[in-house]
Simulated assay, not measured.
Amino acid sequence: MTAPAAPSVRRLRSTARAILRFPEPESWLDVDTGDADFPEAARVFFPYTAFDGLDPTPRVLHAQAVERLEEGYQGRLTDPWITAHLRARYDVVSLLNPLADPGELQAALTVLRPGGHLLVESPGDPRAELESRGCTIIATTRRSAHVPARLTARLPRTLPPPVTGPLASAARALDHTLALLLAGTRFARTYRVIARKEPSAP
């Protein structure tokens, strides 16, 4: 399955390039990072940025072990211990999957430093909510949707490696097929929004 990888890398790098208009961030948190494919792609443009990742699965810990991430945190952004531990730590936070939890935007702003930038890709338009939380919208575009690794992320955590290896390969192949099937449908468009957290934001 090496052939589908190149378009995915191009897509991820396209997303990362949206932040090039700003000074290189010191620290960046990628939410629902999985295997840290996005930080790995973004590092081409931001070689001096420390990339951390957050994911509900143990894949984030493996990504840290193979040095795709500086720090990997297993959990969800809305977990109180996560927001308390990471409060005001990051210059950029990226949310590249549909927002399932309405509290996720607020949690992202909690871990973002004043003056930092939130990069959101979502089927819904988050601008009104971000503005209501004291953010300034810097840029908005519509683009083909990033389809998250839905099946890969749901693999059982307790299976031994001889079992999870083939399962992970099959899940990645099905996730790629899903992305192709969704292309051209109403699910294939998403908002990309960059918002700045103002110092006055709560």
Rank of each mutant, 00 (worst) to 15 (best):
L69F: 05
L69G: 06
E70H: 10
E70G: 02
E71W: 00
G72V: 02
G72F: 04
G72E: 06
G72R: 00
Y73M: 03
Y73P: 01
Y73N: 02
Y73T: 13
Y73V: 13
Q74V: 01
L77R: 00
L77D: 03
T78S: 04
T78F: 01
T78R: 03
D79Y: 05
D79T: 03
P80G: 08
P80Y: 03
W81V: 11
W81L: 13
I82K: 05
I82G: 00
A84F: 00
A84W: 01
R87P: 02
R89N: 05
R89Q: 11
R89C: 00
D91L: 02
V92G: 05
V92W: 09
V92T: 04
V93L: 07
N97F: 01
P98K: 05
L99K: 01
A100M: 08
D101W: 02
P102D: 09
G103I: 01
E104H: 01
L105A: 03
A107R: 02
A107P: 04
A107F: 02
A108C: 05
V111F: 03
P114W: 10
G115W: 03
G116K: 03
G116C: 06
H117C: 12
L118H: 11
L119P: 03
L119S: 08
E121C: 10
E121I: 13
E121G: 08
D125H: 07
D125A: 08
D125S: 08
R127I: 09
R127Q: 15
L130T: 07
S132P: 01
R133I: 00
G134S: 11
G134V: 05
C135T: 10
T136Q: 14
I138D: 10
I138S: 08
I138H: 06
A139H: 12
T141I: 10
T141M: 05
R142I: 14
R142P: 03
R143S: 12
R143N: 09
A145K: 06
H146E: 13
A149L: 13
A149K: 06
A149N: 08
R150A: 13
T152C: 03
T152M: 12
A153I: 07
A153K: 14
A153Y: 00
A153S: 15
L155I: 09
P156F: 06
L159K: 04
P160W: 05
P160Y: 05
P161L: 13
T164H: 09
G165N: 13
G165T: 15
S169Y: 06
S169A: 15
A170M: 11
A170Q: 11
A171L: 12
A171N: 14
A171P: 13
R172V: 08
H176A: 15
L178Y: 07
A179G: 12
L180M: 11
L181N: 08
L181A: 14
L181S: 10
L181I: 05
L182R: 14
G184Q: 12
T185Q: 10
R186Q: 14
R186E: 15
F187S: 05
F187C: 06
T190A: 15
T190R: 04
Y191I: 04
V193M: 04
V193Y: 04
I194L: 15
K197E: 12
